[in-house]
Design a binder for these strands. Structure first.
Length: 291
DNA sequence: TTGCAGGGGTCAA
DNA sequence: TTGACCCCTGCA
């Protein structure tokens, strides 16, 4: 890593395969917001950061070299060679186009608890409302902290959410998902779902554990594994992925399960990365009606 | 202005 | 396998 100190952050020089707009707009996270100058500001792991692409470099504003190495480098998956992944995926002609479109995507390694809650909220929901709900949960129940003179809020802990009344959670705009969040928090606090002890299990086994949590079906489980556990073989199938897979590969109406199996056969251990390129490509190029 | 369909799925029947 | 589900948004 070619790091350089700046006044208030670090500069990653010649950062290949890193485009903030692609990373933060490909559906994997909800707490990063675009600024008027094209940079993104977000909170993760109790820290706030501003990320800005400057030529071929990336500025990480609001951190230092030590914290960057200890936390953000892992968060942004900087240890992985996306050039090699893209080369592998691009042997498929459809993927070649999708990769060209979202060339700067990286899979974030987010906090499992935050990712679980966020994607329970995401079910049958739209992005603006998901972001609004998560922000309200954080503002009301997350730890408050300041950085660079600005106020930020961390994500509420499992215990905090477990102790809240159903009404308090609902008041954040969760709708009927409030009861899922409440139960999920109780299960995590009680140790019935241990998000930190899943690393020894196969992806299929982790999937089963996660799906034992209320509000977590196949899609949400796959999202949690892909976006917080570096399970790159997990392939979440939502309406956009269904659309793009049927249009370019399957050529017919196909069940969600079959789409996932097809993708995992086709892309193998990189299925999840392929999913992100395809999702971003579909969102950017396919209309509401598909094709 | 009001009404209605539809949204990055999951659950229960 | 199918309909209900919170609530916000876009559109007629």
């Amino acid at each position: 890593m070619d790091l350089e100190n700046t006044d208030s952050g670090v500069l990653l020089r010649n950062a290949g395969n890193f485009e903030p707009g692609h990373i933060f707009e490909c559906g994997q996270c909800f707490r990063w917001n675009a600024m008027p100058d094209g940079s993104y500001t977000g909170v993760a792991g109790g820290r706030a950061l501003r990320v800005q692409k400057i030529g071929s470099h990336v500025l990480f504003d609001g951190t230092n070299r030590r914290e960057f190495r200890e936390y953000w480098a892992g968060y942004f998956d900087l240890g992985r060679d996306y050039g090699r992944i893209k080369k592998e995926l691009c042997r498929d002609p459809v993927m070649a186009r999708a990769v060209e479109y979202g060339y700067g995507i990286r899979i974030l390694k987010q906090d499992p608890w935050e990712t679980l809650v966020s994607f329970i909220i995401s079910a049958n929901n739209g992005i603006p409302r998901i972001k609004k709900t998560i922000e309200m949960l954080c503002r009301r129940y997350g730890r408050k902290f300041t950085a660079n003179g600005k106020t930020y809020y961390d994500f509420p802990t499992p215990l905090c959410l477990a102790l809240l009344s159903r009404e308090d959670i609902t008041a954040c705009g969760c709708g009927y998902r409030a009861k899922y969040l409440s139960k999920a928090a109780e299960m995590v606090v009680a140790g019935k779902v241990d998000l930190e002890s899943l690393s020894e299990m196969s992806t299929g086994e982790v999937r089963e554990v996660l799906m034992g949590t209320p509000g977590v079906g196949p899609k949400v489980a796959d999202c949690v594994m892909l976006f917080s556990m570096a399970r790159l073989d997990a392939f979440p199938v939502d309406v956009w992925i269904k659309r793009v897979m049927e249009h370019y590969y399957l050529k017919k109406d196909t069940s969600l399960n079959e789409i996932r199996r097809h993708a995992q056969n086709r892309f193998g251990p990189l299925a999840g990365v392929a999913q992100q390129y395809l999702f971003y490509y579909a969102r950017g190029t396919m209309g509401q009606t598909g094709a």
